[in-house]
């Protein structure tokens, strides 16, 4: 029991830091570049990604192992995963709008933006490639989401600090952000010896 718990914790930690989906796989880059201008926006989007990733990864696990695999239809996983994610985002948006206006303003407006976020599909596909079980897929989904959020908030903080500094003209905008993302990725690999 303890061993399983430790294993899950290890996976959780790895998905946030050492195997950060954004910084090691470079997935979800476009929203990462677009939404990292302000910490507040980055936090809202990060939260939305965590929620969607954390729920769709196990959801896709269920669909894959209960429907696709028994019928040997693993080659349909791309299209089916995309449909599942899109449908979930749609329903989540309707629910959030109904439940709380405040939550909708802070989180709901980002949901349509991440329907086609490749990090979310990426997490679902890694879950399948790495043969995670259901518990692992839950932990991996949430962990990856939190990792993505952490990276985007860190980047937003850096960009806010950088707003007043003089960036060489050819590097201004996406150029310098990609360079910083590279340095951040190197920094995150520093965690690899921890566990």
């Amino acid at each position: 029991m303890q061993q399983i718990n430790l294993e899950l914790f290890g996976l959780f930690f790895a998905s946030i830091f050492t195997g950060n989906i954004l910084l090691t796989n470079y997935l979800g880059m476009c929203s990462f570049l677009g939404a990292s201008r302000e910490v507040k926006t980055a936090f809202g989007l990060g939260l939305a990604v965590t929620l969607v990733m954390g729920i769709t990864t196990p959801l896709c696990w269920l669909v894959y192992y209960l429907i696709l695999k028994p019928y040997d239809l693993y080659y349909l996983r791309f299209i089916i995963f995309i449909i599942v994610i899109a449908a979930f985002v749609q329903v989540a948006e309707i629910c959030i709008e109904r439940i709380s206006e405040k939550l909708y303003h802070n989180l709901g407006i980002f949901l349509p933006l991440i329907t086609v976020n490749c990090a979310i599909l990426g997490a679902c596909l890694f879950m399948e490639i790495r043969h995670y079980n259901f518990a692992q897929s839950v932990v991996y989904g949430f962990g990856s989401g939190i990792g993505w959020m952490l990276a985007v908030i860190a980047m937003a903080g850096i960009r806010q600090k950088m707003a007043k500094s003089r960036v060489p003209q050819p590097l201004a905008g996406a150029g310098i952000v990609l360079i910083i993302a590279g340095i951040m990725a190197i920094a995150f690999t520093g965690f690899s010896g921890v566990l």
């Binding site: 669909v63 349909l76 089916i80 449909i83 599942v84 449908a87 749609q90 329903v91 309707i94």
Partner: peptide, 17 residues
């Protein structure tokens, strides 16, 4: 079977929405 399952999943998700 592939087409049927694909359609079934899509239709059921649409119904949920």
């Amino acid at each position: 079977i592939a087409i049927a399952i694909c359609c079934a999943i899509t239709v059921s998700l649409t119904l949920i929405i």
